[in-house]
């Protein structure tokens, strides 16, 4: 009871305005870095690759002459689940979010943040939000463009599918899942980068975990970000051969549970990251 009271007092008396100002300053610095640095080019490429392919398809098949909407909807669902979610967003977040702290350590500039009167937790949150905004922008835009090109080249039929059929709902779901994927993977890679010097190799282990989670027991499956994301995808994939192992949802979960479940998991990981950074020391060794 006493602890609850002290928490209440803390929340009431906390300098929220000051923290907001600092948070915005951190985000401004980070967003500029994320969008403008040369190392971001590969994220642009990963995000734009499917757009270019679908653009080529649209040119190759004007007005949907060599394809049909059902088939293209299935293909888009496959690309979203198998390329965007499992690889593109995963690797994109890995690059973006591990850079937030590891990059600063490599460039020996993290101490400038640590020497400012900014709570370290605020630094984690600021950097995380900036990374998330960047990832959502890159991949959200990419998915939007992919979707627009995929249905745009069908002409009126495509327009009808989007605005009078299930299209718009699917787009919303894709965008929502993209945001959630960035939230989930972002928190994971921020935390990994604060714990391990080279977070990429554990990242590969996470990739394996995320890929093979459907074969694990039900309890362990819930520790996978992909477990929640798959439930929210609007178009299920056709179970084909070995791929069925990774695409079939054996234990469906309602979106009302999947979304909060993922958010709770991500928040827990972020809280862990905040606890780690409080104890972090500056020791720049050759990386």
């Amino acid at each position: 009871m006493k602890q609850l009271e002290s928490l209440r007092t803390f929340l009431r008396e906390a300098p929220w305005h000051f923290w907001t100002t600092q948070l915005i300053a951190v985000m401004q610095i980070e967003l500029k870095k994320n969008f403008l640095r040369r190392r971001s080019i590969w994220i642009y490429l990963v995000a734009l690759a499917p757009v270019l392919l679908i653009g080529a398809h649209a040119i190759d098949s004007p007005m949907g002459r060599r394809c049909n909407i059902e088939e293209d909807t299935r293909i888009l669902a496959g690309i979203f689940q198998l390329f965007y979610l499992r690889l593109g967003i995963f690797f994109g977040c890995m690059g973006l979010f591990t850079w937030l702290f590891r990059g600063e350590i490599v460039e020996k500039s993290l101490h400038y943040y640590f020497l400012a009167p900014v709570r370290r937790e605020l630094l984690v949150v600021g950097k995380y939000l900036a990374g998330m905004m960047t990832a959502v922008f890159f991949f959200g835009l990419s998915i939007f463009l992919s979707f627009a090109l995929m249905y745009g080249h069908f002409g009126p039929a495509g327009k009808a599918y989007v605005f009078s059929g299930p299209g718009l709902g699917q787009l919303m779901s894709y965008m929502g899942v993209t945001v959630l994927a960035c939230v989930g993977y972002g928190s994971l890679f921020v935390a990994l980068s604060l714990v391990i010097k080279n977070p990429i190799l554990p990242g590969a282990a996470v990739l394996v975990w995320e890929t093979f989670h459907p074969v694990f027991p039900s309890m362990l499956q819930k520790l996978s970000i992909m477990f929640y994301l798959r439930q929210l995808c609007p178009v299920p994939l056709q179970p084909e051969g070995l791929l069925a192992l990774f695409t079939v949802i054996a234990e469906p979960v309602s979106p009302w549970l999947a979304v909060p479940g993922l958010l709770v998991l991500s928040t827990a990981i972020l809280v862990f990251a905040c606890m780690r950074i409080r104890k972090m020391e500056i020791s720049y060794l050759a990386d």
Binding site: F18, T21, Q22, A25, V26, Q28, I29, K33, L36, R37, E104, E107, K108, S109, H111, Y112, Y113, L115, A116, P117, V118, Y284
Partner: peptide, 28 residues
């Protein structure tokens, strides 16, 4: 407190002015 460390490193791509200004902005 102000601390001028011996790490001869800076955030990438900043001008001298931005470097000082950003640090002040971080201070709120």
């Amino acid at each position: 407190v102000g601390y001028c460390t011996q790490f001869d490193s800076f955030p990438k791509g900043v001008t001298g002015y931005e470097f000082v200004y950003q640090s002040l902005k971080l201070r709120g």
